[in-house]
């Protein structure tokens, strides 16, 4: 019984530490880049948003390929929560090549799941009907596309039938 209690307390402590390091977007970014700077890519992968196809090993490999032995001395310049569940952080860091290439800067997107913030952005399918097309000039859209958008379905159908008949005659 005592052993079980110790295990439960230990599990809760681990969960508490994990959640407190991702309790807000800034801590999540700091945890992510700290892990990368310390070459702990699996730990960094665990801070990433886990979608349906997420694989921590593959993500760790990806991070190792991208930042391995390169990133050092990162600094979080600022974090902006852009909605209830989304935030963007601007991060500056030096690399092993900084003397030649200068400092790097990148934007890191974060997503809140429950009470925990993760690095990454939820894929949002583009919804044509959700777009606000009011005020859009149809001619301007046509000009931008560089083609005639007034497609005449009757003409197109007639043309298709003619092509099919021609092909049949040739046979």
């Amino acid at each position: 019984m005592k052993r079980l209690s110790i295990i439960i307390v230990a599990v809760l402590a681990v969960l508490l530490v994990a959640c407190s390091s991702q309790k807000d977007p800034k801590s999540a970014v700091r945890t992510y880049f700290n892990a990368i700077e310390n070459e702990e890519f699996y730990e960094a992968a665990c801070v990433c948003l886990q979608d349906g196809n997420f694989n921590a090993d593959a993500k760790a490999q990806e991070l190792r390929g991208r930042y391995g032995k390169i990133l050092k001395h990162f600094r979080i310049l600022g974090v902006e929560q852009i909605s209830e569940t989304e935030a963007v952080a601007a991060v500056k860091y030096k690399t092993a090549f900084s003397e030649a290439t200068g400092d790097e800067m990148e934007l890191v997107h974060l997503t809140k799941v429950g009470d925990v913030w993760f690095v990454g952005k939820k894929a949002q399918p583009f919804n044509f009907e959700d777009m606000d097309w009011s005020g859009m000039d149809e001619d301007a859209i046509g000009d931008a596309l560089g083609e005639d958008t007034d497609l005449n379905m009757e003409e197109a159908e007639e043309e298709a039938v003619a092509i099919a008949e021609e092909a049949a005659d040739e046979e």
């Binding site: 600022g78 601007a90 500056k92 990148e106 959700d130 606000d132």
Partner: peptide
Amino acid sequence: DAAKVAVSTEVAKAPKGMSAKDVMI
């Protein structure tokens, strides 16, 4: 002689489904 600056902005009204706040480099 070359740099990048990060800036956050907020617009008056966001398009549907988008955020009024943004961060860019």
